[in-house]
Design a protein around this nucleic acid. Structure first.
Lengths: 148, 148
DNA sequence: TATTGTTATACTCTATAACTATA
DNA sequence: TATAGTTATAGAGTATAACAATA
C-alpha cells in the first residue's frame, strides 16, 4: 500500500504553490508598503474598513481572523498615522467604532498602488491572459472561503 | 492627481489574494502535517532533498531562501525522526551532505497526501476545470520566480 | 454574569552574530 | 584567511490570559 508520490506530487498541489508563492508575494508587498510605515496587516485592516459599514474591533478581529489584541495594536498604529479614528458607540459604550479618515483612504490608495506594482514585478514573464486568468481564479477561490 | 482606488483595487491584485490565500493554505497544510511531527518548512526541505542531487546545507539554505542556521534546526529534527542522514563529504570535510532515508521518502509521501487532502478541502466549491487551471497558473508563476 | 477593549505576558519563528572545524 | 556548519542570542509577530469598563 501507500503510494509513492515524492516531491513531484507535493509540488503539483495547490496548497504547496499557494504557500510558497503567498510568502513571496507577502514579502514583496511588505517591502513596498513599509515606506508608508505600514505592514501588510495594516493594509488588510484599512481594506476591511473601506466600504464596509463602521465596525467594532471585535468584528474586525473575527473578519480578519486575528486576535482582538492584535486589532488594538494595529488600530493604535493607524491612529498614530492619522489613518483611522476611534469613536465610542453611544448605543453601547464598550464598543470602539473604527472609521477611515481622509488620510486613511489616501494610505489605502497607496497600498493598492504598491500591490499593483508588486503584481507587475511578479508577473513580468506572463502574458496578460495568463495574468488575468490567474487573478480571477484566485478571487473566486478566495470568495469561496469563509462564505458566511 | 493620485487616483482614488480604495479597497476594491487592492482586492483586485494578485499579491493581495496570494498573500491572504497563501496564509490560509499554509495553515491548513500545517494542521495536517503536524500529526507527522512536521511543519511546512520540514516538508519543503524533504521536497528539496528528493530527486535533487545530494546537497550541502548551505546550498539548501540558499535554495529555500532561509538562513543556514534554520537548515541546521530543521535537519536536526528530521534526523531525529529518521527522515534524513547527515554524511560528511570526504572531499571537503566541512560539508554535511543531507540525504533522504526510506523513512524520509515515506514522510514526504504523507506530506503529499496531506497537501492533496487540503487541496480538496480548499477547492470544494470549484469545478475540476477551475481547479486545474488555477494549479497550472500557479505553477507557471512559480517557475518564473528565481529563474537562475 | 457576559462582553468589549486593553494590557501584560509568553510563545513561535527566524535571522544575526559569534564560534569551531576544516580548507 | 575564508568557508561550512553549529550554537547563542535577539527580534518580529502574534496569541493567550488577566484586567477594566460597560452592559
Amino acid at each position: 500500500m501507500s503510494d509513492v508520490k515524492g516531491a513531484a506530487a507535493l509540488r503539483a498541489t495547490l496548497v504547496f504553490n499557494l504557500g510558497t508563492l503567498g510568502a513571496l508575494a507577502a514579502d514583496r508587498f511588505a517591502g513596498r508598503v513599509e515606506a508608508l510605515g505600514l505592514k501588510p496587516k495594516h493594509a488588510g485592516l484599512l481594506a476591511a474598513l473601506d466600504g464596509g459599514s463602521a465596525a467594532s474591533q471585535q468584528e474586525l478581529a473575527t473578519r480578519l481572523g486575528v486576535a482582538p489584541s492584535l486589532i488594538v495594536a494595529l488600530a493604535d498604529q493607524l491612529q498614530e498615522l492619522g489613518a483611522v479614528e476611534r469613536v465610542r458607540d453611544p448605543e453601547d459604550r464598550r464598543r470602539q467604532v473604527l472609521t477611515l479618515t481622509a488620510e486613511g483612504r489616501r494610505l489605502l490608495d497607496r497600498c493598492a498602488e504598491a500591490a499593483e506594482a508588486a503584481d507587475a514585478e511578479l508577473t513580468a514573464g506572463l502574458t496578460t491572459a495568463q495574468r488575468t486568468a490567474l487573478t480571477r481564479g484566485l478571487r473566486t477561490l478566495g470568495d469561496r472561503q469563509v462564505p458566511h
